[in-house]
Computed example of a mutant assay.
Amino acid sequence: MNFFLFYMFFMGLLCLILIRKHILLCLISLEFVVLSLLLIIFIFCMNFLYSFYLYLIMMTFFVCEGALGLSILVYLIRCHGNDYLTGMFLW
């Protein structure tokens, strides 16, 4: 089970590194990495009988990160008309 979670994490990072054309695809791969980290924290809390305060705090940070990423995506689409990463660096 732990090997699967680390495999999820590294595949998400690999997708984040390789897929660099659209901001939305980068955000989706980043959320996949966040989901795998959240599962790792959940398994850690279950195995060592910790309280779930760490899990709730990290979930709050990850939700804020997702909302911030979507707001940046909406801003870039309004300003540039598309979500290409290459289009941002032309001006």
Rank of each mutant, 00 (worst) to 15 (best):
F61L: 05
C79A: 11
Y50V: 07
M58P: 00
I72Y: 11
L13Q: 03
S51D: 15
C15H: 04
C64F: 12
F62G: 03
I23S: 03
F42R: 11
L49G: 06
Y7S: 03
N47H: 15
G69L: 02
Y53R: 07
F62V: 08
L39E: 08
N47I: 14
L24A: 10
D83S: 13
Y7W: 02
G81H: 07
L49N: 15
L70N: 00
I28K: 03
F48W: 14
S51A: 12
D83G: 12
F61S: 00
F62P: 01
D83F: 10
I28P: 07
C45F: 10
N47E: 15
T86Y: 14
G87V: 05
L13G: 03
I40W: 09
S51E: 13
F32V: 14
I23P: 01
M11C: 09
F89C: 08
L38D: 07
L90C: 06
N82C: 08
S51H: 15
I17R: 02
Y75M: 12
N2Q: 06
N82I: 02
L56R: 09
V74N: 10
H80R: 10
I77C: 09
R78K: 15
I72A: 07
L24C: 05
V74D: 05
L24N: 10
L90R: 15
G87M: 08
I43T: 15
E31S: 01
W91H: 13
T86F: 13
L76D: 02
V74H: 12
F61N: 00
S36Y: 04
F89W: 14
Y55P: 02
W91V: 04
R78G: 14
L73V: 08
I77K: 15
S29Q: 03
I41W: 02
V74W: 07
M11D: 00
Y55S: 06
Y84I: 05
F10D: 01
Y84R: 12
M59L: 15
L30D: 01
L85N: 09
L76T: 12
F89E: 08
C26N: 09
F9D: 00
T86H: 13
L68Y: 15
L56Q: 09
L16G: 06
M11P: 01
W91C: 05
C64R: 03
S36K: 05
K21Q: 06
T86K: 15
L76V: 14
G12M: 05
L13M: 05
S36L: 02
